[in-house]
Design a protein around this nucleic acid. Structure first.
Lengths: 246, 246
DNA sequence: ACCTGAACACCGTTCAAGT
DNA sequence: ACCTGAACACCGTTCAAGT
């Protein structure tokens, strides 16, 4: 008599059609959010689904294809404000904050979105909205494109910074070791840094508030100071166009 | 008679002391710059050095330790301008550009530097210089710390964006596929994007020029418009402090 | 002390086979 | 059509052994 199911693997053969792309993506998001990108393994994914490792390959051709699908789903969750609600600048801030929030809620999205360029209709919708708002704020075609790229770069960088910092700090006593290291720095060699250690820590821990601070700075520099809108008040891109081109 | 050295592995036993930490780091940088982070493998590193895989472990405890050492070495290459040469704003731009250039020259540094928080004296020196320049530009302690974090976040994000894009585009005909995809977009659904496709491509390909554009915008927003320096002309952080705190 | 190969526990993926 | 385990070519690292 053969042992068909050993005591070490209590899972029986899964019935047909237990798996589908949506269920797989659900499990992938859970795995990524809970355990991080490095724990996102085909074997772990299958185990999470209560299924043999190779079952997933009936629905996706490769791990990369799953990653792309996860990224698209997460991008679809970015909330776009209703059209024509509030002024362009405020709506722009809202879209940027939504993108930042996406990364804060799903740290793995950053890895997925930065590894490959944005694909899929969801990304397209976000980009189109941002460009439209920049045009509405008074920027010409060239300046709008440049401002959009700058805003996306800052948003990605800020989110990445926060995620990495959070991940690193929840390691064993790293926070305390960094504190000790900074406290021991010679003030004569590093006068500015030693003077600003607590302020730096506060800024680094501010998360969304710090993001908004840089965002407001960037918007002020790119489309002009607050309260001044339209082409007249622009102290932004075009003033320095010649300088950058040179 | 035993075959001590098969034809398939022509490498003979390496003489003692052929290896040292510096030679290992040299090889690691070559490997990372030429073939990318995913090709940075202990086995590939050893092969590059003409040595058995485990020989490297006599000089570094783990792959992670090598990564940290590489990051420190690369950070040491960031050129800091001589003290008191030009005004604070211009020096600040120079430091930021140096950091950006480091990432452009050594794409793998981004992975290494973003994975773990900056360690080592080289990073400390860069941070101290930036903070000092922000103080010299007239920012108070809190604003200087916030501005520094915003600048670093933008710099990392911009560099990452460029590196990812470059890596992705050198894939098989991806550039052409993206172009086709954008050309086929319905203008009534995505009016702003379809109108700005060429401008977006130009901005994305601008590299350092695009970085400087956002950098100037950010600096203008954080420490005030060009030509206005000192506390009087500040249209920067403090004006919106109350707004962000709320 | 420094370098070696074999081996271990992983990984993504191919393949032939079950139902 | 959908799910399975065995197997392959990788990976970082441990270990006992050579010199």
């Amino acid at each position: 008599m053969t042992v068909t199911q050993s005591a070490r693997s209590p899972r029986r053969r899964a019935p047909r059609n237990t798996l589908n792309p949506d269920r797989i993506l659900d499990a992938a998001v859970v795995l990524l959010d809970r355990d991080g990108a490095e724990a996102f393994t085909m074997r772990a994914l299958a185990a999470q689904l209560g299924v043999g490792t190779m079952a997933v390959y009936s629905h996706f051709r490769s791990k990369e294809e799953i990653s792309d699908a996860v990224a698209q789903r997460l991008l679809g969750e970015v909330e776009l404000p209703a059209v024509g609600e509030g002024d362009a600048r405020e709506q722009l801030r809202e879209v940027c904050r939504s993108v930042f929030r996406l990364f804060a809620d799903h740290p793995s999205a950053l890895q997925l979105l930065t590894t490959r360029p944005m694909r899929g209709d969801e990304a397209i919708a976000v980009i189109d909205r941002m460009l439209g708002l920049l045009r509405a704020a008074g920027l010409d075609r060239t300046d709008a494109a440049r401002a959009h790229v700058a805003l996306m770069q800052y948003t990605v960088g800020s989110a990445l910074w926060n995620v990495r910092r959070e991940r690193a700090l929840c390691e064993d006593g790293l926070r305390e070791r960094v504190r000790a290291r900074l406290a021991d720095l010679p003030p004569d060699r590093y006068p500015a840094l030693t003077d600003l250690v607590p302020e730096l820590a506060t800024a680094q821990d501010a998360g969304m508030a710090q993001y908004e601070l840089g965002l407001d700075g960037l918007l002020a520099g790119l489309i002009g100071p607050i309260g001044v809108s339209g082409p007249i008040g622009r102290a932004g891109l075009s003033d320095r166009a010649g300088r950058s081109a040179r």
